[in-house]
Amino acid sequence: MRARDVGLASCHTCGLLLHLPASGHTHCPRCGTPMHMRKPNSLNNTWALLIAAIIAYLPANLYPVMTVISFGKSQSDTIMSGVIYLFAHGDWPLGLIVFIASVLVPLLKMLALLYLLITVQKKSHRRRLQRTRLYRVVELVGRWSMVDIFVVALLAALVNVGAVATIEPGAGAIAFSAVVILTMFAAMNFDPRLIWDYQGEDNG
């Protein structure tokens, strides 16, 4: 039994529970936002944003996120080499956190969204609870990947001592923040209620 079966839906913004007209679209009387039985074009939008994020993921990891120019010598750092540097020179707990936030999270997030999209499209009814939980985790942890962008911004702001040392942000940083933002939007566009549709076919 879903809310949809009795024509009910709650507003995304203010949570008001309403009887929706047969068209499935209306405006929330309390906060005025458009309301839908399911987010419109949820799958298409999520696919588009996810594919864009996957494309941006390549330059994000191949191009340097920053270049350190020190005494005339320049050295470029990618996301991965930055993590390796932390493991080698800093302390490994911080390296581990950054590794999780900037390498593991974006990758797993894109794989998770891919998995959610494919299982919903195949009208799968397996592991619904786990998939819903997966979605919540994806929505929650995505923003932490932004940490690398902040590091680059802070380093560029601090290390600007002319000939002695300068740190410049690289093209990889733009691509990387694009990955983070695109996956955040992709997760927002996905409607987790789709996971629970198509259940009348098997277990009633």
Partner: peptide, 29 residues
Amino acid sequence: LSWIGHLEPWVMLDVFMLGVLVAFVKLGN
């Protein structure tokens, strides 16, 4: 009030703080 919920994911004060920590370690030596 309806915009506050949409704004929340973009407030990254805590993530920024982690960035400060990392920058500290990276410039330490």
